[in-house]
Design a protein around this nucleic acid. Sequence first.
DNA 1: TTCGTATTAGTAACTATTCTCAACAAGGGC
DNA 2: GCCCTTGTTGAGAATAGTTACTAATACGAA
Lengths: 130, 130
Amino acid sequence: MMTRQRRVILEELKKTNSHPTADEVYEAARRRLPRISLGTVYRNLDILCDCGMIQKLELGGTQKRFDGKVENHYHVRCIRCGCVEDVSMEPLTTFEYAIRGACDYEIIGSRLEFIGICPQCQKEAERRQK
Amino acid sequence: MMTRQRRVILEELKKTNSHPTADEVYEAARRRLPRISLGTVYRNLDILCDCGMIQKLELGGTQKRFDGKVENHYHVRCIRCGCVEDVSMEPLTTFEYAIRGACDYEIIGSRLEFIGICPQCQKEAERRQK
DNA sequence: TTCGTATTAGTAACTATTCTCAACAAGGGC
DNA sequence: GCCCTTGTTGAGAATAGTTACTAATACGAA
């Protein structure tokens, strides 16, 4: 059942590529539906995940992030400011092969994340050195 | 300053390869030092991390896990029971190359984690099907 | 319209972690 | 030995992020 709230949450997520946290989605949704509650946002993010319309990112850091892009792709996370961006790089298959035989788990998938410093934080650091 | 508490925490972590969570370390330490507090465990795990004697694992799931093995290696996590094991597989370098040029972050490192079902949970699943 | 079900807003509860702070311990200089 | 400094501890409070509960509301089928 695509309620107004659920649709707004989905739309807000689809139109950004900033991989927002739940409370950032909440803020965005609230601009259009001022009475929406945080609980509704969490619940709908989970539901949208379950039916494969969005993706929940379990990257490092304390908060989970959400991604409107569901195709397989990788992320870089800035260790300074915590921002997350997509990496324009072909999905790798080498390590999926390497793992089979290396352990007796039934492998379902893998998660690869890059850690770095974003351009803005690099500039910030340069500015301080002067 | 290697206090009794810090030493016990380190020893307990070095002698297991189950990648315990903070409260599992707390339980283990408590068997030897019944009056140790959870705050002390968290504090010392952080300190031991900072000086490179242990490793903090930011894998998926809600809790962080700790690893007494500091060399570069990978982990498999069971999606059913949450247990984590080492993977006996050579560290890969291909994707570290692939990322450079694919984005304008200054890359510091990467995290690769495999998701699967552990042997025990596989058996469990088979048993239920019968 | 009425009924049944799903969903909502608001809030309480929960979990993992960090913070605060008074008390304590260890080591060095006298 | 005693004093001082500094780092550490245990206990509990505080915080952050998330999930659960509940009464009220919205939607769709009959």
